[in-house]
Nucleic acid binder design. Structure first.
Lengths: 338, 338
DNA sequence: AAGGTTTGTGCAAAGCTTTGCAGGTAAAAT
DNA sequence: ATTTTACCTGCAAAGCTTTGCACAAACCTT
């Protein structure tokens, strides 16, 4: 026998009062007799009454659900950001629905529509790598649904974002590689339309300039962010007559792929080639040698994105803010020569 | 200006017909005039009408939302199972809400209650490691909400589960270690109340027996599943006079911690110590040496759990089924001596 | 032409909650 | 004794959809 959830109606019937009286009593409305209020509250407690969120949602036109779209779930970077989002939203009484775009714009569009149809109260997104159109996000704004991007962002003029200073980090890491003896520093990165790609490339170029190195165009490679295609690109790099003596990856995943290829060729890290990546994945300290990487404050990125959503919900309007969080360069064996 | 979502009412008003006519026309009810139906459908299409899920939920007493509770999100094992669940449920028109119990029963209880209050249509769970009481899940059953456990399970008499054959896998892997020369095989595992711990321990003992080894009680260690405590346990193991020459971990995370400790002592894998784990994390092939591990069909585990939920929803009753999926032992460098 | 079908449309209730307003009772004031 | 006041409580609508039932008009039958 299905144990139906208890409703106001049930309590009202039991106590022979009206539904509205029960509703008011439960929120300590001064109009209701104190004794009656106490009795109603006692029964509600005993029967474990919980307001039906569907009814509330219908009434208030809000669902207490925030959508989150990430390129994938299996990367530590994203799962720990989600964990930050969850921490912040949960205590504000919101639920989150997580969707994975699997790095595909098509899937991303589908996710956005699904979530919109579900009537979410807000949306937090990290763009898919091949997301080069913004129409689906404009639609989110049209519906006046609060929107926040993190890490990979777009529509920055209208939408709040949480990012890191990619340019200066990429610059720092490039000069760091130089200081450790590298003179042919390659950068393997992703699709050109992504902000993180643009910014990190810019930082890389600035870094080269600062230490007085010239860019070898063959050493700047745009591929996609998948390990397989990264591996292919790396094989190309390693076969060049001007083989690089350092590789900066747009993220750690790319560098993990790189490591495998390098080991296959019996080259030594860091003796023959220095390596460094972005995002400081959990396994950066598990691989051998340990990987130098830019650590993002993932938990904080999540918390801040969540806070920006909550702010917009409270204000009842779209807000355009840009939060830039600090990163740390974690120098490890893969990029140091003594 | 908030762009309100279009409702049946809006369409009815525009076309000067009643709401019920619109409702019926949209589902091709034969009663409605064909021409009118066409007109209504055209407008609904143009205005991008989507039924309000809150109203539908209230009416049908279902939310189209399935809750998923996992011990953590950052392990590849869980995120890829979630990905399987998502694939299956999405095409059935369900949304999923993911909560992390962070391996804590307290948090798990909280998650269950939250999700129940949200009126989810079903719940898929992998137990937290210190979950040793089932009251909160009994409550789920009381409310007649479909429930499925995977991997770490309980209440098997009443609830559907998706698992692997831990006993035989642990046995196989133990004999495999023996065949590669190990004679002092240790097993480092988790809390005793967990089914996976019990079963893998049983398999380990059976394996020892089969190859004619006696259990050294100091070589069977129950700790918790956190890398830190695992590391502590491993330090103990490595300091024993009867230091093991092989370690079987209850999962890969434990073995990753083990690797670090072993390397700290300048012992060599697999020369001095063989290693093998469970669950074949993504990074099993990234670490050096590559880790031997039992590969779980994670995506399939997810899909099957989802299917069991859908089945129960369709049948309208609780079903007790046990699905045992096949695993594969991926033998790699960490456990082979030539 | 009158009764019987067929065909098409709308009313209203149910699902659950909140809240403005009306109404009722009893006590206080005149 | 009558009016006023204060204090409680309940009705009904709104939020959106589905669906059983009633009703109306037009057609057909005899």
């Amino acid at each position: 026998m299905k144990k139906k959830r208890v409703t106001l109606k049930d309590i009202a019937a039991e106590l022979k009062v009206s539904i509205s009286t029960v509703s008011r009593a439960l929120k300590d409305h001064p109009d209701i007799d104190k004794t009656l209020t106490k009795k109603i509250k006692a029964l509600a407690q005993k029967w474990n009454y919980i307001p039906n969120p569907l009814a509330m949602g219908l009434l208030r036109q809000q669902t207490q659900v925030i959508g989150v779209i990430v390129p994938d779930l299996v990367t530590y970077f994203f799962s720990s950001i989600i964990s930050g989002i969850e921490d912040e939203l949960q205590q504000a009484g919101y639920y989150i629905i997580i969707s994975s775009s699997k790095e595909s714009m098509e899937k991303e569009i589908e996710c956005v529509h699904n979530l919109l149809n579900l009537r979410i109260d807000g949306l937090i997104v990290c763009l898919a790598q091949d997301s080069n159109d913004t129409a689906h996000f404009e639609k989110v704004l049209d519906h006046d649904v609060p929107l926040v991007f993190f890490d990979r962002v777009c529509l920055e003029k209208k939408v709040s974002t949480v990012v890191v200073d990619n340019v200066s980090m990429a610059k720092d890491i490039t000069t760091h590689l130089f200081e450790n003896g590298a003179r042919k520093i390659a950068h393997i990165t992703g699709p050109k339309h992504l902000n993180i790609v643009k910014e990190r490339t810019e930082g890389y170029l600035k870094g080269l300039e600062q230490v007085g190195l010239l860019l070898d165009k063959k050493h700047l490679i745009h591929t996609d962010l998948s390990p397989n295609n990264a591996a292919k690109a790396i094989r190309g790099l390693l076969s060049l007559p001007s083989r690089p003596d350092a590789i900066l990856g747009v993220n750690d995943t790319v560098i993990f792929a790189t490591m495998k290829e390098i080991k296959n060729r019996n080259l030594k890290i860091p003796k023959d080639i220095l390596l460094a990546g972005f995002s400081d994945e959990f396994h950066a300290t598990v691989v051998e040698p340990n990987l130098t990487s830019v650590a993002h404050p993932t938990h904080d990125i999540g918390r801040n994105a969540a806070k920006l959503i909550l702010e917009q919900i409270q204000e009842g309007r779209s807000i355009q803010k840009k939060i830039i969080l600090n990163t740390e360069l974690h120098v490890r064996e893969s990029s140091t020569r003594h």
